[in-house]
Design a protein around this nucleic acid. Structure first.
Lengths: 142, 142
DNA sequence: ATCTCATATTGACAATCGTCCATGTATGGC
DNA sequence: GCCATACATGGACGATTGTCAATATGAGAT
């Protein structure tokens, strides 16, 4: 998770699933590229823990998106190494930056790192039971 | 992850971290409630795997947000039990519904289950190094 | 130089995850 | 009825995760 290979996609391979089966004659929906889905999953994995959700939201509400972590172990009810572990995870995922100021470390959100996640969750482009955007995949199957 | 206890928050407890320390005199940023952050983390955890990212996006691009899974093991290069495992995870997180039609199961996205995640990631309300929305927390610390 | 304090790292451990094979279950077709 | 098929479940197993205690690192303060 450092490489960013956006925009690459592959189509669902529908070469004869079973020779005599006419299931899904029209379906040809795109499947997200493996690299891109891996990168997105890394971001979501970083958010997949309640402590880290709280940390990110805390930073996202702190002035300039920056705060020190000094009071957080007590506030969150976790040990200092555990806090360090979680901030490290956010950092590894590219969601925050570290900056040492004197004796303390200040953490800052990097909102642009969430662009991919936000795009995936962007409901405007979704097909839903209530309707589909133009150009969506045909209902082809079974 | 079935209980939805939104909107509850708690404030950072700044009762004397250390008696004689005047660190963070003005800081009083909100920390997301434990229940709500747990619920959000469950959703993100469900998305924290490349296969599940691909599955959700596949459904989100299929007509009416619905598709059968019949061709997916081959297309994704995974076994049928593994696919079942991942779809089960998405289902447990409330992101998709199962509907048995004849011999096949059809899966449908539930976009409203992502409302919380979308709200957290909604950059408009974020403090960033480039600026803060009105009413953000004071820079108080260290 | 030494001490203090904020943070990172290491090591240990239980718990969960992702994967598959083998088997169970239910549905439709004959 | 019986068989084939789509999917779920149970068991196994290695890999990863989240946690803490103990320790290391590194920067101000004295």
């Amino acid at each position: 998770m450092r490489s960013r290979v956006w925009r690459v996609t592959t189509t669902l391979d529908l070469t004869p699933a079973r020779d005599t089966d006419d299931c899904c004659p029209g379906a040809s929906c795109e499947l997200l590229d493996a690299d891109e889905s891996e990168a997105l999953a890394q971001v979501f994995k970083a958010l997949g823990d309640p402590t880290r959700v709280r940390l990110l939201r805390y930073l996202a509400r702190s002035h300039d998106g920056t705060a020190c972590a000094c009071h957080l172990p007590a506030a969150l009810g976790i040990s200092q190494p555990t806090l360090s572990f979680h901030l490290g995870k956010l950092h590894d995922a590219g969601l925050v930056t570290r900056e040492k100021r004197g004796r303390w470390v200040h953490w800052t959100v990097l909102p642009e790192a969430l662009a991919g996640a936000r795009a995936l969750l962007g409901i405007d482009a979704w097909c839903t039971p209530d309707g589909c955007p133009p150009g969506c995949c045909p209902a082809g199957c079974c």
